[in-house]
Amino acid sequence: MSIPVNGRTTMRRTGLSLPPDLSLSEWRHLGQQIHIIADSSAWWLGDWLIFGQEHYPDRYRRALKQTSLDYQTLRNYAWVARKFEPGRRRGKLSFQHHAEVAAAPEAEQDAWLTRAEEGGWTRNELRRRMRMERQSPETSDESAVVQVKVFAERRIRWQRAADIAGLGLMDWIVQMLDEAADDPVPRIPGPAAAPPALGV
């Protein structure tokens, strides 16, 4: 399937055909449009998954077949979309900006996004500033330090999952723990107990 754009540029699933006389301003405008579509698609998929969760059974099995995206990626999209009602999403910031602050309390999310918006920060700059504040000795004593020893093999698996999600390892761990706390599934004792089903 091909989609003509302004009669001169053609978009296909596997490529983009540009005319040789494309002006610099047209090229820039096209790039902005592509970026908006790419960034918006994460929100769209997240909202689509949430709708599926509320209306249809076996939502993620169907979603995986429809999108060819891996399960963890879909979980991340839905998790971030759930953390931000559409009215709280900042149009000037990327989905990844929102993902960086999603694990924080709502007031803190808004404060960081406002600072990022006003400062014109990239996602990486937002992440850097958040890390700096967490490491600052002036940080509130309300936070607690939790240390966990894990085998290297497990840490590598976690790091790989965090990389796929586009998060730092600690941010990914916090996200996973928050999800588990939001929807705890009690284990049924006994050898015949089945593992709990994962859901977003």
Rank of each mutant, 00 (worst) to 15 (best):
A78R: 11
Y77Q: 05
D182G: 05
V5N: 03
E179M: 07
T9E: 08
D178V: 01
R88G: 01
S41R: 15
E133N: 07
V146N: 06
H97C: 01
P189N: 09
K92V: 02
H29R: 10
A99L: 13
V185L: 11
R89N: 05
P105F: 13
I173F: 11
A78K: 09
S68D: 11
H29L: 01
S17L: 08
P57E: 10
L74A: 03
L30F: 14
A107W: 13
P19G: 07
M170G: 07
D58R: 11
F84C: 03
P57I: 01
S68P: 00
A111I: 00
G31K: 06
W172F: 15
S23I: 00
M132R: 15
W43R: 02
F95M: 03
H98G: 03
K83G: 13
P191W: 14
N6L: 12
R82Y: 03
E118M: 04
Q66F: 05
G15T: 01
E106H: 10
D70P: 02
E85A: 15
W121V: 00
I188M: 12
G120F: 12
Y71W: 05
T122R: 12
R61G: 09
W27T: 01
G168K: 10
P105N: 08
K65A: 11
M132D: 14
N76Y: 08
L177M: 11
K92T: 10
T14G: 10
Q135M: 08
L113I: 04
A180M: 08
D163Q: 11
A81H: 10
R28T: 04
R127F: 09
E133L: 09
L30T: 04
R160G: 05
V200R: 14
R115K: 12
D39I: 01
L45R: 15
F95L: 03
A99I: 00
T9R: 12
W43A: 02
V174L: 14
Q109G: 04
L169K: 04
R75D: 06
V5T: 01
P189Q: 07
A102H: 07
M1E: 05
E108S: 07
R123E: 11
I188Q: 14
R12T: 12
A194K: 15
R129S: 02
D47C: 02
Q66V: 00
E179S: 05
D171W: 06
R89Y: 10
P195C: 08
A81E: 04
A102L: 02
V150Q: 13
L30N: 06
L74W: 08
Q66H: 10
W172A: 13
Q159Y: 08
D141Q: 09
V148C: 11
I36L: 15
M1A: 08
T73E: 09
P191M: 11
P105K: 14
E179T: 03
G166M: 04
Y56N: 06
S23P: 02
P195N: 07
E100V: 06
R90V: 06
R187F: 11
F51M: 09
R89Q: 13
E125Q: 15
F84Y: 13
D70I: 00
